[in-house]
Structure formats: structure tokens, C-alpha cells
Computed example of a mutant assay.
Amino acid sequence: MPERQTHTRPIALAVWLVIAGVIGWWAAFTLTMERLHKLEDPNAIASCDFNSLVQCSANLESWQGSVFGFPNPLLGVAGWVAPIVVAVALLARARFARWFWLLFELGMLFAFGFVCWLIFQSLFVLGTLCPWCVVTWVVTIPTFYTVTLHVVRAGLLPAPTAVRHAADRLMGWVPLITVVSYAIIAILAQLQLDVLGRAF
């Protein structure tokens, strides 16, 4: 069996993690500030409230917006620090143990699953599109794909050689896979919310 490549230094992955981490953190921070502003003044209109379809308030004030007893954006403020730290460490030639990568992958799996649940809630229950939530979706989806494929291709998860090679080849297809994922969400949003009809 080939030696696990726990010491690989994926530069492209590191660069993407920095970009995604900064964007995701900013979206979460902005949403957190919007929530604090609403707590100070319940009658205040959030800066991301444009109409009944595109708004943040409905999402932030719903039970779905505080699933764990506190505003969801706080998860992002704390969570998006991890990809940034990992990326900077990789660029500095740090080597992580297998257990570290597996914990990181577990965190990304949770983030991806949570985002998928929030997308469903937003489209099929709340009937709104929160701009900053969408930004979070946009960066979480490809980040999950890239981290998962890296963990598999590096042999950090038990998998046959053919599977690891397939994951390595699929890494180059992440942009297309991501665009397809976005397209599916956009189609669901159009079918459920009539985005084009309500926006124009």
C-alpha cells in the first residue's frame, strides 16, 4: 500500500482556502452585525433587505437562523477562521497529521451539510434569498469539494488506489462541478420562488 501523503503541500488548495475563508468570514461578520443591529432596534431595516424575496431579516429572525440557540452567523465568524489558519500554515510549509486532516474534513462536512439544510429551508420554507447567506453557500460548496478530494487523493481516508487517482483527476473538475451545483440551486430557486418573475 502506498504511503499516506499526509505531508503534501497543496498550494492551489491553500490559496483557495484563504480566498474562501476571507469571503466566508466577511459574510458571517456582516450578518452578525445586522443581527446585532436588529436586536438594538427591532424596527430597523437591514441593509441587505431589498424586497420580500431578497432579504436577510426573515432568515435572521426565524428559528432556522438560530438553530443552536445563537445566531447562525456566529458559527461562520468562528468557523471560517479554520480554513484561513490551515491555508497560511500550508503556505508556510507546515505538515499536518492524518487526524488533523480528518477533523478538518469533518468540519467541512458539517458546514456543507448545514448549508444544504439552510438552502432547503430558505427556498422551501422561508421563501427568501438572503444575500450574505448566498455568499456563504457560494464559498462553502467548492471548499467542501476541494478539501474532500484532497483528503481522498492524499490517502488520508482509506481508499483503493483507483479511487485516489480518480479524486486527483476530479480536482481539476471542481470549478465545473461547482458551477453545476450552483445551477441546480438556481433552478430550484426559480421553480420554487419565481426569482426572475419577482425580480423584474
Rank of each mutant, 00 (worst) to 15 (best):
Arg98Pro: 00
Asp194Arg: 15
Trp16Gln: 02
Val134Asn: 11
Phe120Ala: 13
Met171Val: 01
Met108Asp: 02
Leu13Pro: 00
Trp101Ala: 04
Ile119Trp: 04
Leu157Trp: 08
Ala27Tyr: 06
Val88Phe: 13
Ala186Glu: 07
Ile185Val: 15
Thr143Trp: 01
Leu91His: 11
Pro73Phe: 08
Glu40Lys: 14
Ala162Pro: 00
Val139Tyr: 13
Gly21Ala: 08
Leu102Asp: 07
Val88Pro: 06
Val22Cys: 11
His150Glu: 09
Val15Ala: 14
Gly113His: 06
Asn72Lys: 05
Leu60Trp: 03
Pro83Ile: 04
Trp132Pro: 05
Ala183Thr: 14
Arg198Pro: 07
Arg169Trp: 01
Phe110His: 08
Ala94Phe: 13
Ala58Trp: 03
Leu123Tyr: 02
Arg164Phe: 00
Thr30Ser: 15
Leu17Glu: 12
Val195Ile: 11
Leu126Gln: 13
Gly79Pro: 04
Phe96Gly: 06
Ala166Pro: 00
Ser47Met: 14
Val67Trp: 15
Trp16Asp: 05
Phe29Ala: 14
Ala89Met: 14
Gly76Leu: 05
Leu123Arg: 04
Gln192Asp: 06
Ala44Gln: 07
Met1Gly: 14
Pro10Glu: 15
Ser122Cys: 07
Thr148His: 10
Arg9Glu: 12
Ser57Arg: 10
Val163Met: 00
Ala92Leu: 14
Val174Tyr: 05
Arg95Trp: 04
Leu129Ile: 15
Phe50Lys: 04
Ala12Glu: 12
Trp63Val: 11
Leu156Ala: 01
Glu34Leu: 11
Met33Tyr: 08
Thr148Glu: 04
Val15Cys: 13
Val15Glu: 08
Leu60Arg: 01
Glu34Asp: 12
Ile23Asp: 11
Cys130Met: 03
Gly107Arg: 03
Val180Asn: 02
Gln192Tyr: 02
Ala154Pro: 08
Val163Ala: 00
Val115Tyr: 04
Val134Met: 15
Ala199Pro: 04
Phe112Thr: 09
Leu90Phe: 10
Leu126Met: 12
Ala28Asp: 09
Leu102Pro: 02
Gly113Lys: 05
Gly107Ile: 07
Thr178Tyr: 15
Cys133Val: 04
Tyr182Asp: 08
Pro142Arg: 06
Thr178Ala: 07
Ala82Ser: 12
His150Ser: 00
Met108Ala: 12
Asn43Cys: 08
Gly24Thr: 11
Thr30Gln: 14
Ala82Val: 15
Leu13Cys: 02
Val67Ser: 12
His150Thr: 07
Phe96Val: 07
Leu188Cys: 14
Leu103Lys: 05
Phe110Asn: 03
Ile185Glu: 10
Lys38Pro: 01
Leu91Met: 11
Gly79Arg: 05
Gly197Ile: 08
Tyr182Ile: 14
Pro10Trp: 04
Pro160Ile: 05
Ile45Tyr: 06
Val81Gln: 15
Gln121Phe: 09
Ser62Gln: 05
Ile84Ser: 03
Trp137Glu: 12
Asn72Gly: 03
Ala154Gln: 01
Ala199Asn: 13
Ala97Thr: 11
Phe200Thr: 13
Thr30Val: 12
Gln190Gly: 10
Pro2Glu: 14
Glu40Gly: 13
Phe200Ala: 11
Met1Trp: 12
Leu126Ile: 12
Gly155Trp: 01
Thr30Tyr: 09
Ser52Ala: 15
Gly21Asp: 10
Val125Gly: 02
Phe120Trp: 14
Gly69Gln: 09
Arg93Met: 00
Leu103Gln: 07
Ile11Cys: 05
Trp117Tyr: 15
